[in-house]
Amino acid sequence: MSLFWRIFLLNAAVLTVAVNLLLFGPVTVSTPVLFTEAVILTAGLAAMLLANAVLLRIGLAPLQRLTRAMATIDLLQPGPRPAVTGHAGIADLIRTFNAMLDRLEAERATSTARALSAQEGERRRIAQELHDEVGQTLTAVILELKRVADRTPEPLRGELHQVQETTRDSLDEIRRIARRLRPGVLEELGLVSALRALTTEISQHSGVVVRQHFDSDLTGLDEEAELVVYRVAQEALTNTARHADARRLDIALRRAPGGVELRVRDDGRGLGQAAEGAGIRGMRERALLVGANLTVGASPGGGTEVRLRLPIANGSN
């Protein structure tokens, strides 16, 4: 029975009872209306409205639950689907909504995978050009400055040496940017070595004291999962260095029941009431690609904690 007919029949039943009471019951209406008759009719109307409200509340309760689910749903944080309850049209509506969510999440995952794949490809291209083109040009400039400085009188030699050191610092910075864009150590030496290099670099440039805890046995992660772990750790460490005003940071990558868990925890000022920015949403998108669960919240000792859990088939401690 459709929602329209259910509401219609509920109201028709209430009105039918009222008419029958007037026709066949002791209730009558005089002209002019007597006080007792007015009291009886008012009480009857109140009873009809109350019964109608209760019946409609019960019948439309599944729609209210669906409305709350629609208002709070977030494709980046999938949750349980609304239970398919109610009759006829309401159950069909909830079922259709759940199917729409499944389709939207699948389409978003596909489009996100394509976008991130293109992004990684562009990062590799830019890193390669920085290394091959800009890096080689600056290296040539450093060598030429050294040659000119060796043939320059003493008053200018010191200035040329200073320019040479500035150029060398710029070359080191470009190489650092290229490594962040394309983590070659991840491809060559593996995830743990790449994370060690990343934390060392962050510690040197930010002054944050970093403590590392990495399990040696992390088999079961494919290349895509390792890249997701690396990029999430990179974003978390960068956010800590830039925005957290932290003095200490703990990063751990360990075996967990059923998978692997990455945890980045700092003692900074925390997230407060700030809304999630593009960096955190980017981490959530990457986590969804490999079926991982990402949580970002307050650290037990103050500051911020980022926790990424990746499931692995037949994973164990």
Rank of each mutant, 00 (worst) to 15 (best):
L262P: 00
T28F: 10
E154Q: 09
V208W: 07
L198M: 15
F4C: 05
A46V: 14
I280A: 00
P32I: 10
G79N: 05
G297F: 12
R68D: 11
A292F: 09
G282V: 08
L171E: 02
V232N: 00
G207A: 07
S203T: 11
M100F: 08
L195N: 05
T219I: 11
A71K: 14
D150Q: 11
T304G: 04
A178S: 12
A275L: 13
L262H: 01
V39T: 03
A12Y: 02
E187H: 12
R180Q: 09
M48H: 03
R147G: 02
M100N: 05
E285M: 06
G282I: 12
D266I: 13
V29Y: 08
M70C: 06
M283D: 01
S30M: 04
E144T: 15
G220Q: 06
A256D: 06
I126E: 05
N52Q: 12
L308V: 07
I312N: 02
L23M: 15
Y230P: 01
R248C: 06
R123Q: 14
Q64H: 15
T112I: 06
D217A: 08
T166S: 13
V148M: 05
R263I: 15
A236G: 05
L218S: 01
V264A: 02
R147I: 06
R255I: 03
R125Q: 11
T110G: 07
L50T: 14
P183G: 07
G158D: 09
R242Y: 04
A292D: 03
T28W: 09
E120S: 08
R157E: 05
H161T: 10
E305T: 11
A18W: 13
A91G: 02
L22H: 09
L195S: 06
R114K: 14
N20E: 13
L56A: 03
T166M: 15
V185M: 11
Q77P: 01
V210R: 01
L130P: 01
A244D: 04
D169L: 09
V306I: 12
L49A: 12
R65E: 08
A47Q: 05
D267M: 04
R168F: 13
I312Y: 04
L23P: 01
L227N: 02
P82S: 03
